[in-house]
Amino acid sequence: MLELRLVQGNLLKKVLEAVKDLVTDANFDCSSTGFSLQAMDSSHVALVALLLRSEGFEHYRCDRNVSMGMNLNNMAKMLKCAGNDDIVTIKADDGSDTVTFMFESPNQDKIADFEMKLMDIDSEHLGIPEAEYHAIVRMPSSEFARICKDLSSIGDTVVISVTKEGVKFSTRGDIGNANVVCRQNTTVDKPEESTTIEMHEPVSLTFALRYMNSFTKATPLSSTVTISLSSELPVVVEYKIAEMGYIRFYLAPKIED
């Protein structure tokens, strides 16, 4: 028996919007730790890791570890039927081949049940080693989204370079090239508007902008984004989900042939 009650049901809606274009089918794992997902895109270039900790749910019952295979587009379709203020409960019986999403309006005057078929998904779980990153950039998520969108109108790849001057996002294409430099800025009034750069070593890596743009669909989940870079390692683009956990996107770099 599994029953997870999330008062902020719209968090789940936002999570699905953030991952459904990157990953088609995925296993959601449920354990005493929380509700999690790890999945790669079909070309194995990007990986998404989601954790919603059990403490973040108003009610969290998970009698045994379960893995539920879901088509993310279908799940997104069902969650779109929940109101933004609705409380969402995820329910599944042991051994069942369906999952139920229950939506309750805040004043309890409307209750809806949406039952979705589960699927068997053969996915390999990857071990993500702890790494010391050469540079960690924290910036407003909307600013990062804007930069990725702007650069993708010029080129297909972005070079992210961190030096003591700041973080530079560069691209080049047929029509020309573009560079955006963001400097550390902690003097703004609101911490969510600041940019901080923690650099242990200068680092410069090249990535496909198509994936970066896909990651920015998680922008509504968090006002800030953290970009962790190390030479010859996948970049980690992390959006913290307040009180609950995180969504992390890993993207393999383009490397010298």
Binding site: M40, H44, E124, H125, L126, G127, A252, D257
Partner: peptide
């Protein structure tokens, strides 16, 4: 020339 690497080149199953 740069080529796209894959996640599986960095993280192994487990």
């Amino acid at each position: 020339v740069r080529k796209q690497s894959q996640i599986t080149a960095f993280f192994s199953p487990g």
